[in-house]
Simulated scan of single mutants.
Amino acid sequence: MLVLRPNCECCDRDLAADSPDARICSYECTFCADCVETRLGGRCPNCGGDFVPRPIRPAHLLAKNPASTERVTKPHAACAAA
């Protein structure tokens, strides 16, 4: 099951569980669409993989399996440059 992290790993922007702007790689690294497009060139700085839109968990299932509240940020060079 996806963790559904609450923020962009690059700019720390809030990404709600139903955000259409969340992007993930195959390792579930989570970034906002803006950072993926403007800072990261469409490649994950952790694994080098592609990004896809993060699936949205239906609201009735979020009650049973809520999104994570643990914020993750990492000091990526591409993020510090902006």
Rank of each mutant, 00 (worst) to 15 (best):
L40M: 14
N65F: 09
C79Q: 07
R5K: 15
R13T: 14
P45A: 05
G48N: 08
P53R: 14
A78W: 03
A80R: 12
F31M: 04
R13I: 08
L2D: 05
R43N: 07
G41S: 15
C47R: 05
L4G: 05
G48C: 11
A63Y: 03
E70A: 04
G48Y: 02
C79T: 06
R57F: 02
D21F: 00
D50M: 09
A82F: 03
R13Q: 14
C32H: 02
A33T: 08
L4P: 03
G49A: 13
C79M: 08
E37P: 12
E9V: 02
L62M: 11
A22T: 07
C10N: 10
N65H: 07
C29W: 03
L4A: 08
L4K: 02
T38R: 15
L40K: 03
R54W: 05
E37M: 13
E37D: 15
K74H: 09
T69E: 14
F51K: 06
E9Y: 01
R54M: 12
G49C: 07
D18M: 11
R23Y: 01
A78V: 05
T30M: 03
A33S: 15
A17E: 15
A16W: 03
E37F: 03
E28S: 13
T38I: 06
L40C: 09
A78F: 04
P20T: 10
C47Q: 08
A33L: 12
N7I: 03
C25G: 10
A81H: 13
M1H: 11
P75N: 14
K74W: 04
F51I: 06
S19V: 04
D34A: 10
Y27W: 11
E70V: 04
K64A: 06
M1W: 06
A33M: 01
A17V: 09
E28F: 04
V52C: 12
I24W: 00
L15S: 02
N46T: 11
A33R: 08
C47N: 13
N7F: 04
G41C: 13
V36S: 00
R5V: 02
A59Y: 14
K64D: 02
F51H: 07
L2Q: 09
H60C: 07
H60A: 13
F51D: 02
E28W: 05
D34C: 06
G42T: 01
R57T: 10
A77Q: 05
N65E: 11
T38C: 13
R23C: 04
D50E: 12
L40Q: 05
F31T: 00
V72R: 05
G41A: 10
F51C: 10
D21R: 02
C8W: 00
P55A: 13
T38D: 14
L2H: 07
V72D: 11
